[in-house]
Design a protein around this nucleic acid. Structure first.
Lengths: 208, 208
DNA sequence: ATGTGTTTTAAACAAGTGTTTAAAATAGAT
DNA sequence: ATCTATTTTAAACACTTGTTTAAAACACAT
């Protein structure tokens, strides 16, 4: 028997949407099954339990998250232009999946969330060779010497936070969706300028 | 009748802890009442409902959040040193309340979360005069010309994200609590350097 | 001690939770 | 058409949820 979209995929897609929007604790199995247009029992028929289904969705979300990074790192460019492209792509990717960072951070803080092995993601990133490339650039004086955690944090902070905090910023500054989106473009440019000049010290800083 | 700590305060304190750690959806009324060492019915006796209690806790959390900012802005210093002090204080404050940013962002995304008026917080910040001060510094060429949202985002991103994403970063980089904390100190310095030099263009950037 | 108002509790309520069971519907092979 | 295995459903399971009710415990004035 064949279908355009298998039942299993229907469930996963529905679960992805619902989990992302409301979190593990914020939704019920029945809600997911309804979003997939079927009976509750089917969810457990294909994926033994709610937790099991969640684990699959979460890991695939992490996978997307990391894959989006690695594609840029593996490309063949100077490290500085990799950085520029990376920021560009990260804003683009996260605009399409705005709930992803909050989702990942929230669920990492859940007790059960720790059961998942995260180190493998670091290994994947490391395997792209980006960290060695940075170390070399730092040794050659082409790049500011900061440790890898700090580098990761600088980039992630400035790419992810502006998208995670959308509703907060809209609330505080009183902006519509469109206004926020257009402001985000300006901000992306500022972030790029700031990070590139800080890390690679392109001394074209002239203000006023 | 008098007590050292009133029942009402006991409930609020317990609710604050539990809500922060698990979110609105992630905990039950009974969990809160047990944390406060009493019967469930008492929670509803003092605060009509779980939602009502939550609203109070959330708004007080936002209050703390904003108050922590304003104290620095209202002080009597140059805008550049205000920035330095602000980052310092923000890292210190958030280290003591690490769940606060994720909590606020998560609950802002809940449907019911929108019922709360957020604009008042912006007004409070604006009332501190910090925005005018920035505008003036920008007009005088002392500060880079970027809009307020972007400025807010730059600061918040770099102060809040490193603390929100602790468990994610620990997972990825394989760090203990102590290691992360000490790395956070180094990172705070990097953030300060980067932001100050980007915004005020202190051109002492010479690498290696 | 009695009465009064407040604070606290145990118990119950209906509704919703994750999960399981057994029966029904469906598919494909003979 | 009959049999078999897979897919889907309705119904029930035991348990937790937010909230309410009525009785108990308490404090305090008289």
């Amino acid at each position: 028997m064949k279908k355009d979209v298998t039942t299993e995929e229907k469930i996963k897609e529905a679960a992805r949407h619902v989990f992302m929007a409301k979190g593990f604790a914020g939704c019920s199995s029945r809600e997911i099954s309804k979003a997939a247009g079927m009976n509750v029992a089917l969810v457990n028929y294909y994926f033994r339990s709610k937790s099991q289904l969640f684990k699959i969705i979460f890991e695939s979300a992490m996978e997307d998250f990391v894959t989006s990074m690695i594609t840029v790192f593996s490309s063949d460019q100077s490290i500085e232009s990799k950085m520029r492209v990376f920021i560009e792509r990260e804003f683009e990717f996260l605009s399409k999946h705005p709930e992803l960072p909050v989702f990942i951070i929230t669920e990492m803080n859940r007790e059960e969330g720790c059961s998942i092995d995260h180190a493998c993601f670091f290994e994947k990133i490391a395997a792209s060779g980006i960290f060695n490339e940075c170390a070399q650039a730092q040794a050659e004086g082409k790049m500011r010497k900061i440790n890898i955690l700090s580098l990761t944090l600088l980039i992630m902070s400035n790419c992810q936070y502006p998208i995670m905090a959308k509703s907060l910023m809209q609330g505080i500054h009183g902006l519509t969706d469109e206004e926020y989106t257009s402001n985000l473009l300006l901000h992306k440019q500022n972030v790029t300028d700031m990070l590139v000049s800080y890390l690679f010290s392109v001394n074209t800083i002239t203000i006023k």
